[in-house]
Nucleic acid binder design. Structure first.
Lengths: 233, 233
DNA sequence: CCTATATGACTGACTGGTCAGTCATGAACT
DNA sequence: AGTTCATGACTGACCAGTCAGTCATATAGG
């Protein structure tokens, strides 16, 4: 599924002649303390998240990621085939854990619209906006077009599951007369739009005008359903 | 008629180059036809838009931009100081023409909310989504955090002008009892959110599920105001 | 009118630096 | 001892930015 779409940087090209390399005696290399492969993998992904988030894909330096993870650059390649594989693994590591919950929600039939919205917005705040996943969402927006495989993954696993859920709840709400129009049923994008705005605003304009995301989503829900959302505790 | 400079080719007879910088004889360089500086500048910005849009800032190659503009790389530097200056000029070239219109609208007081929304959405479709500016908006989202100067420019000149306009119209509409909540007055971001979604969706998911932006914005307006927007012709 | 000289816009080979990816070597385990 | 893991110096490709050289055009001189 990786489907190297970015390409262009063929990497260090073909074979090199390392036989003539001068054998420089190393000094006692300070070794990283043993860590389980799992832990080390997580450490790498963690470092990668930070670096990719603040530099973007192209400008991110594998040297920085390695340094941040407390390992040598070569070690990266024991865990990930190349930069793109690392990037894709990073996205997956953030999205995969959510997919189960998503399936669970999707399997629950006939949820009323306000319940769907409430859980969607709450989950967004707790699982995305309140975490470093927020940066990954922006990375996805920024780099998605150049990683069609990731865009497709995102569409198939996240978007194409959430949208029908919202649309269906909206359709039933409309049938019960709770909604004045079929706009939400036809364009569930209108429901999630403020989530995008939250992430983008936070990244670009927060320092000029901070945005109270919780309050905005509350107002959004009230606008959509006409009802006051259940306030949290 | 090339008018050859006489066979002093590098590969020719005896190549004796004493100077460090070898004076390589050029073959009849196909010059770009003279063009007005204005026109050439536009050609460069045009090429830059294409390349930046499809590669992102870091991955964009000035060689590509030059080739696309039909000029040599060196010529780029006669018009722009460096890559970043070119990028910033590109953003400005797209935003500046709109600022006047924006001022004009902002100067018109007491516009009713539905008028504001209608002109906002129409302008967006005609001036942004329907043009190459759409790519620049996404570029701004993608690269903004790494170009604080651009983010600030965008905030001061675009965002901080549009938002109060919407908020004010929403406030008055609420006073007239046309709105059930003060959500829009407090969070004008909710009004523009679908615009962002349109751009992002189009860039990432259009090939999986095309989005009818005009219809979505119409539905959005109806949701916000409760009234059917005036349909175009 | 025509030719000579001057101008500077334009060119593209080149440089210096950067960075993804490699692998000989060493350290730590079994 | 052998095996596995980790290292970081190294390599080659790549690219932003430079600048010596070129030539179309403009102007001066004959």
């Amino acid at each position: 599924m990786p489907e190297r779409t970015n390409g262009r940087r063929t990497g260090g090209a073909g074979k090199r002649d390392h036989s003539r390399r001068v054998a420089v005696p190393r000094q006692g290399a300070p070794r990283a303390p043993r860590a389980s492969p799992e832990a080390r993998r997580r450490a790498i992904l963690d470092a990668a998240l930070t670096v990719f988030a603040e530099r973007g894909y192209e400008a991110a330096r594998l040297d920085d990621i390695a340094a941040r993870a407390g390992i040598a650059k070569g070690t990266l390649y024991l865990y990930f085939a190349d930069k793109q594989a690392l990037f894709e693994a990073l996205i997956h590591s953030a999205v995969d854990p959510i997919l189960e919950q998503l399936s669970a929600v999707a399997a629950t039939p006939n949820l009323p619209l306000d319940k769907v919205l409430a859980s969607l917005f709450t989950a967004f705040q707790q699982e995305v906006f309140g975490t470093k996943r927020k940066f990954l969402l922006r990375l996805m927006i920024a780099e998605g077009p150049r990683f069609p495989a990731l865009a497709e993954f995102h569409y198939r696993n996240v978007v194409s599951r959430i949208m029908p859920l919202i649309a269906e709840a909206a359709r039933r709400a409309r049938e019960r007369g709770e909604l004045a129009t079929d706009g939400l049923a036809r364009f569930p994008q209108l429901v999630v739009a403020p989530l995008l705005v939250a992430v983008v605003w936070d990244a670009l304009f927060a320092k000029f005008a901070p945005l109270d995301v919780a309050a905005m989503l509350e107002a959004h829900q009230r606008l959509l359903t006409g009802k006051a959302p259940r306030r949290r505790s």
